[in-house]
């Protein structure tokens, strides 16, 4: 339990998807112009992350990694399908996004009107695929740890984009040099926020 909590906190603050790994930068830059839309995209990313990472974890553990197929019988114990993991992960992400879109549209139209436009964007958001790849690389011990990591990373991304949007709303009133206006200053700001987040690194969990 303690371990799960530490993974959760760590993935929000220390291993923040945006500030430490630049994941999901494209949509981060494009959608961080207003706090309201940023909230929507952040929520959608968190949601899809929490669904896809555990699914991919189970697939990775029982189908893809070396010896994962041993539950089928002795003959299958040595098969290593890990070269297919990329294609499987991306297919899972794309299809889950599609399913989520349909389910949300049918059962929660209000939520759909908020999230709808972002869902297709998310299929190619690096943060989502990155989440699954890091899950695979870091060898989490069980689904609980993987889910805690997914939730933490999603919230970390959410936090980053909302904070950025808030700053950008204010910065429209400042005199930024013309060539730096818009994207340029956003990059520099993200870098500075990343530096600030690095101060969390000293925390021992």
């Amino acid at each position: 339990m303690e371990n799960i909590l530490s993974i959760f906190v760590k993935s929000i603050f220390i291993d923040n998807m945006v500030f430490a790994f630049f994941f999901g930068m494209c949509s981060y830059i494009a959608v961080s112009k207003s706090v309201k839309t940023a909230m929507g995209l952040g929520l959608a990313v968190t949601f899809v992350m929490v669904v896809t990472v555990p699914v991919n974890y189970i697939l990775n553990k029982y189908v893809l990694s070396t010896g994962a197929l041993s539950w089928l019988g002795e003959r299958y114990a040595t098969i290593d399908l890990s070269f297919l993991s990329l294609i499987v992960f991306i297919a899972v992400v794309a299809s889950i996004v599609q399913i989520v879109e349909m389910v949300v549209e049918k059962f929660a139209p209000a939520l759909y009107s908020q999230l709808g436009i972002f869902l297709p964007l998310i299929a190619v958001n690096c943060a989502i695929l990155g989440g699954s790849l890091f899950m695979q690389e870091r060898d989490y011990l069980n689904v609980g740890e993987a889910s805690a990591f997914a939730l933490g990373s999603g919230i970390g991304w959410w936090l980053a984009i909302v904070a950025m949007a808030a700053i950008r709303e204010k910065i429209t009133y400042s005199h930024v040099p013309a060539p730096l206006r818009g994207v340029g200053i956003t990059f520099i700001l993200t870098g500075l926020m990343g530096l600030a987040f690095m101060s969390f690194m000293g925390i021992q969990l």
């Binding site: 040099p177 730096l180 990059f187």
Partner: peptide, 14 residues
Amino acid sequence: LPPMALICVGVIIW
């Protein structure tokens, strides 16, 4: 450190 990559991109764009 990772954040400097972003600041450098910002400068290149500038």
